[in-house]
Design a protein around this nucleic acid. Structure first.
Lengths: 212, 212
DNA sequence: TGCTAATGAGACGTAACGAA
DNA sequence: TTCGTTACGTCTCATTAGCA
């Protein structure tokens, strides 16, 4: 005997795809971000590859794993772009670098395992050679721009003082003699006498003041 | 059957381009200096070439590799402009030179391997020939162009003064006698008397003025 | 930090030079 | 020769800067 079955009709909206906006009549409906998608519409916002397996989203966009991390993953300490977690990287202290970015800032040569290098304050890298060359150049600058100062030894000083007692303004030939005796340059001897006279004058003035 | 996708929600504002200031809706967002750029807005500050691959920054500016190193790379010791790391260079001590700049400062000839040259204090280069020619010329100058000045000693001065008191225009034989006595050249003795007479005249004039 | 070597500007005296 | 000028050698004064 035939049976009559009661039938319950339930009105339900046919879902619309968050990608193309059309209704979805497919058997498989993908759901991400509480929204439905045609499987052909759920593609990475960056590379447009279909996202059949896993997807990552940010705001209203969805991404494949690689592109998501490229945008939002750990930042390369040199170029500051995201690094997909699958990518081979190099590290220096806590910093992570793209393989290509793990290179000397100055000569741009890539740094290989075993290479020695310096990690700069801005987290960029400089190879040992360049760093030390730069350092040396800096030092060179510092020390070559420095005014040379003769150190007059006790012995030399004695000879100069003795001569000074004879005369505080010795004639040229005396200075020549003194220069030969001490090994000091003529100019150095001359300047010594100048400074010495200035000192004596200064001392006299100061003494005068004290008596006042 | 429906699938549930693991989804990472990260709230983030739609980035604004650091170049033009507009929002970026592009598929590709470039990030440099912690700031986002339209790919068309990220161009080298110097040559305006698009920086799609790698870029170098300094302060708020971004540069392509070549221009970055032109500005900030190792400086050519001669022209003082930066050298892109890919460029072939020559070296002298710690100094690096553009191939074209590795040339004699004086004759401008490029220096080749094996050529002898001098590295000057300002890190510029002079070929051996020119350097030694210049050196010789300098020596020549120093010893011939420099006006020699006789230093007349106290003793000699005394003899001259004594003679001057006898006569301020001594006859030739008197000058000869003086020259022999002092060891000074005849010409020197003659000039001394000339200058002495000039001085006396000058003093008289000045004294006259003072009395007025 | 103090002493003092070195530098630089400015002045002076005068040896040397060149032209008239 | 004289006259005007140039430039060498030295000094002072005020400062700067290197080293024990």
């Amino acid at each position: 005997a035939d049976r009559v079955f009661p039938v319950l009709f339930i009105a339900a909206a046919i879902p619309k795809c968050a990608g193309c906006g059309e209704h979805i009549y497919d058997r498989f409906i993908l759901k991400v971000l509480d929204r439905a998608w045609h499987s052909k519409c759920l593609t990475c916002s960056d590379c447009m590859a279909p996202l059949s397996d896993k997807c990552f989203s940010k705001g209203d966009n969805v991404y494949c794993k690689d592109d998501f991390f490229k945008r939002f993953g750990t930042k390369c300490a040199s170029c500051d772009k995201g690094i997909p977690p699958t990518e081979v990287v190099r590290r220096a202290q806590e910093n992570v670098y793209h393989l290509d970015c793990f290179a000397c800032l100055m000569c741009a040569r890539q740094l290989n395992t075993g290479d020695e290098f310096y990690l700069m304050e801005d987290r960029k890298l400089v190879c040992k050679t360049d760093y030390e060359a730069a350092k040396a150049r800096e030092y060179e600058m510092d020390s070559s721009n420095k005014r040379p100062r003769t150190t007059i030894t006790a012995k030399q000083l004695e000879a100069l003082k003795r001569a000074y007692n004879e005369s505080n303004k010795p004639a040229r030939h005396v200075r020549e003699q003194l220069s030969a005796e001490t090994g000091l340059d003529m100019r150095v001897v001359q300047v010594w006498f100048q400074n010495r006279r200035a000192k004596e004058k200064r001392l006299k003035k100061d003494a005068g003041r004290q008596r006042w």
